[in-house]
Amino acid sequence: MAPITTGHYLGLSAALLLIGVAGVLTRRSIVVVLMSIELILNAVNINLIAFSSNSQNVRGQIFAMFIIADAVAEAAVGLGILIALFRNKDTVLADEVDLLKW
């Protein structure tokens, strides 16, 4: 088998990103959309780690940590919005909410 290079990691990252994007675009359940966003952020992390180890530099890992912090904040706020939405609109389906018109 060919040795694993940074390119492999980048390919994995790209595939994960595409799956995440597909999830965001297609799923009706907002919970799953939020999960897909987590996937996208993890794809970014893989990318950063790959470049970090490729360039022998821990800066990429620092950035990955910030992204994790960001993802956590996003999950907390997103789920808060979800609960508020469920309480007011009685739905958790993205295509039953069309508030972005106003």
Binding site: V21, V24, L25, T26, A94, D95, D98, L100
Partner: peptide, 13 residues
């Protein structure tokens, strides 16, 4: 302009 989040995201994509 249908107000659905995901439609906008699709346009974005």
């Amino acid at each position: 302009q249908n107000g659905h989040l995901q439609s906008y995201a699709l346009v974005f994509a």
